[in-house]
Design a protein around this nucleic acid. Structure first.
Length: 418
RNA sequence: GGAGAGGUGGCCGAGCGGUUGAUGGCGGUAGUCUUGAAAACUACUUUGCGCGCAAGCGUAACGGGGGUUCGAAUCCCUCCCUCUCCGCCA
């Protein structure tokens, strides 16, 4: 959510930003007109309420002196009627205003490249050289099925499409990657590990921005609960409605979770392999930090995620998403893409974003500089560190041998030893 | 799932429907005293929103929502959450 005061003061700026990220400028006009009505109604209501409060306390005094107040009270019946009516109108406007405000996306950072879609994204850097194979490299799903470590058939029997069963070394490697990533982030990069519920309530989904706009992407579990599409949701919401101490910032969490996505709009995309699943594992990095430091923190968070690929020896590149490709809540995002030899291209394994105070405002997460200063919103960031299934696929493809087996990267060897 | 108890300011904890934004204590901040510290004493110590250049004024908030009333932390309804006991269960 954007700051209403900022929107009022800079309507043109917000409009430009909306158009850049292919948003709807009518959203803004709608917000502003309801906002104007709301402010007018607010002052009308508060004025009336003020006089009502005054008379009420007068009645209290008179009553204590045993004076007759029946006439005053019958007069006040009318006033009470009016304040009730105004308050109802005000509430309706508030609801409308809130629902409009929740649909306005974040404003892209100055440093976010301008562009209308994926083609406007800017490559920032590359690391590693794609390996040379003396044969045609095979896709990971083919390797996995041949080796008996992926079972798509049985997965579709027990669950359906876009699921996989990992077996033997496949299952072992998946867990190994999770533990390896968590170890690196906690021991080397200083994150605190958290393990959270995979089901969250509606308030949490609204806080991080999945709701109200992206309900169709989520699995609803009933009883008001939703299955998380990423650990970002429970972890960022950990500090919802809290005032943090400035000296505790930045707070850095690393969290493993299974992630659940309906992939409603992706029919026909990545139907083979384990690239796009309804359920997948991910280690997520989340930070809460001082506003003036959030862009430095974005750089270091991205570097922390990249470090996993370096340690695994997987070639990758970092791409800065352009305004048109930016996700709803983000001000700036770096995608980390790992090399897939069978496709001859880089594919996303991590998305690292600075949300500035967009999520913090929705979740009411503040900090206090010192005891005397007012609380203000923190900045929140997150990024995958990394998507586990895709990393496993990349390991298999990049380390594959001519005979259809693959080597295990040195960094993982201690994690898969029997 | 059944039975009971409870949700008040950073924390603990009061609160006959009427100067209660809320007694008191702890904590915190500033000051007095002291060579320094402690102790003691004094004062201050919630946040959101609207209006205003500002000082400030107004309004709202005692788990959430609704109701009764001139007036609700206090009464009624409803939902949520926590705890205890029983049942069931990895």
């Amino acid at each position: 959510m954007l700051d209403p005061k900022f929107i009022r003061a800079n309507p043109e700026k917000v409009k430009t930003a909306l158009l850049e990220r292919s948003g709807d400028a009518a959203l803004l006009d709608g917000f502003l007109s309801v906002d104007a009505k709301w402010r007018e109604k607010t002052s009308e209501y508060e004025t009336l309420k003020s006089s009502q409060n005054q008379v009420s306390s007068e009645i209290a005094k008179l009553k204590r002196d045993n004076k007759d107040v029946s006439e005053l009270m019958s007069q006040m019946k009318v006033t009470a009627e009016n304040t009730r009516r105004l308050s109802d109108e005000l509430k309706a406007l508030e609801t409308e205003l809130e629902s409009k405000a929740l649909l306005i996306p974040n404003i892209p950072a100055e440093t976010t490249p301008k562009g209308k879609d994926e083609s406007g994204n800017k490559e920032v850097r590359r690391w590693g050289e794609p390996g040379k194979f003396g044969f045609t490299p095979k896709p990971h799903d083919e390797l996995g099925e041949k080796l008996g470590i992926f079972d798509f058939k049985r997965a579709s029997k027990i669950s359906g499409g876009r699921f996989v069963v990992l077996k033997g070394l496949g299952a072992r490697l998946e867990m190994a990657l999770i533990n390896f990533m968590l170890d690196v982030h906690t021991r080397k990069h200083g994150y605190t590990q958290v393990f959270t519920p995979f089901l969250v309530n509606e308030g949490s989904m609204t806080g991080t921005g999945q709701l109200p706009k992206f309900r169709e992407d989520l699995y609803e579990a009933g009883d008001g609960l939703f299955m998380i599409p990423t650990a970002e949701v429970p972890v960022t919401n950990l500090h919802r409605d809290e005032v943090l101490q400035a000296e505790d910032l930045p707070i850095k969490y690393a969290s493993y979770s299974a992630c659940f996505r309906r992939e409603a709009g992706s029919y026909g995309k990545d139907v083979k392999g384990i690239i796009r699943q309804h359920q997948f594992n991910k280690v997520e990095l989340v930070k809460f930090c001082l506003p003036e430091r959030s862009y430095e923190e974005l750089e270091s968070l991205t570097a922390d995620a990249e470090d996993i690929l370096k340690l695994l020896g997987l070639p990758y590149r970092v791409v800065s998403l352009c305004t048109g490709d930016l996700s709803f809540a983000s001000a700036q995002t770096y995608d980390i893409e790992v090399w897939f030899p069978s496709e001859g291209k880089y594919r996303e394994v991590s998305s690292c974003s600075n949300f500035e105070d967009f999520q913090a405002r929705r979740m009411n997460i503040k900090f206090r500089k010192d005891i005397k200063s007012k609380p203000q919103f923190v900045h929140t960031l997150n990024g995958s560190g990394l998507a586990v299934g895709r990393t496993l696929a990349a390991v298999m493809e990049n380390y594959q041998q001519k005979d259809g087996t693959f080597l295990i990267p040195e960094a993982l060897s201690s994690y898969v030893q029997e």
